[in-house]
Design a protein around this nucleic acid. Structure first.
Lengths: 182, 182
DNA sequence: ACCTGAACACCGTTCAAGT
DNA sequence: ACCTGAACACCGTTCAAGT
């Protein structure tokens, strides 16, 4: 899997060949197919593995510094992936997952996990008065994730992947979206 | 190009073969390569062609009904594409454009055009007091586009492409983001 | 000038043979 | 049980030959 990540980073999902991944991992094609049932399966396994890594760090930060700053910390980590050239890979993961439910299913399970963790933080922040209480925690979480992903993709598309600018853009949106009224 | 759109809709970009597109268009492979230099070039031409179609309709709506309702109208049209199964195709376009600058360049030109039109509407709405005046029109436009694309992609990924729900989700975000304070 | 389609180079996947 | 790698089926692209 590390070999596949290295290849995908270098040349992207569709441009990387199974032969390259085999060479990088020093195994034969047959051996690779013993562990992954297809090329799409590899990207699924990678995406599944990467999700939820930083959820615990986020939860701690949310309690110590408040929801928006913690969210911006997570955003910074996410935008860094785009700065590292993983933008096209993330778009590929979306594409494969949207097209192929076998790819999407495990990713959705991991995503649900993340959503649940962030949802809990939203609810806690609402109790502390940081977030408008009339907003539904699940919708808020999904919307913020969508904004995060959209901002990253658009910036990669526009060749303007400045992490700090991306975080500021996200913070301005999140602050105004979440701010309690009256 | 209509033939390619039909194929990509049916089976997606990477799953469609040049032979299929040739058959659908009733031309030979050689003839196709006379008009498009590669498969990536076809998706670039399609995306370029589709952009800016609804910009004029948006401008009129923005003046008649206000910015957010007009934006929601545009959002509805955009989310309908995802409901029509174009989600993976849109992700493919992002992927190819992020990876290949030859694909991205014409798309960026078309995107800039749309951004400019929406920017003008933002400025006009700020003068009418509909939108917080301290917000930068270009950032606002880019952020709303990012949210639009992110919400669409995430819903396609989650297999929850309900256009009305998506529009409501977007409207709630846009209203709170743009609303003038004090 | 423009088109055809066989040919080429290449890639994901399989499976008979090996250890 | 697990691995190897040649073989297979397939696809994007080209180009000599045709109109």
């Amino acid at each position: 899997m590390d070999a596949a990540i290295a290849c995908f980073r270098r040349r992207g999902f569709h441009q990387s060949t199974m032969a390259e991944i085999c060479a990088e991992a020093s195994v034969s094609a047959g051996a690779l197919y013993r562990y992954f049932s297809s090329k799409a399966d590899i990207i699924g396994a990678i995406a599944e593995d990467k999700r939820g890594e930083s959820d615990q760090a986020f939860l701690r930060a949310a309690e110590e510094q408040g929801f928006v700053p913690a969210m911006c910390l997570a955003a910074r980590g996410f935008f860094d992936k785009f700065a590292d050239g993983d933008g096209a890979l993330i778009a590929d993961i979306f594409s494969e997952a949207i097209r192929d439910d076998a790819v999407a299913a495990p990713l959705r399970a991991a995503d649900d996990q993340s959503v649940k963790i962030f949802m809990r933080a939203v609810t806690a922040a609402q109790k502390r008065g940081e977030i408008e209480t009339t907003l539904d925690p699940e919708t808020v979480t999904d919307t913020l994730f969508a904004a995060l992903e959209g901002i990253g993709l658009r910036r990669a598309f526009r060749r303007d992947i400045n992490t700090e600018a991306a975080v500021s853009q996200f913070r301005a949106l999140a602050e105004r979206y979440l701010e309690p009224r009256k």
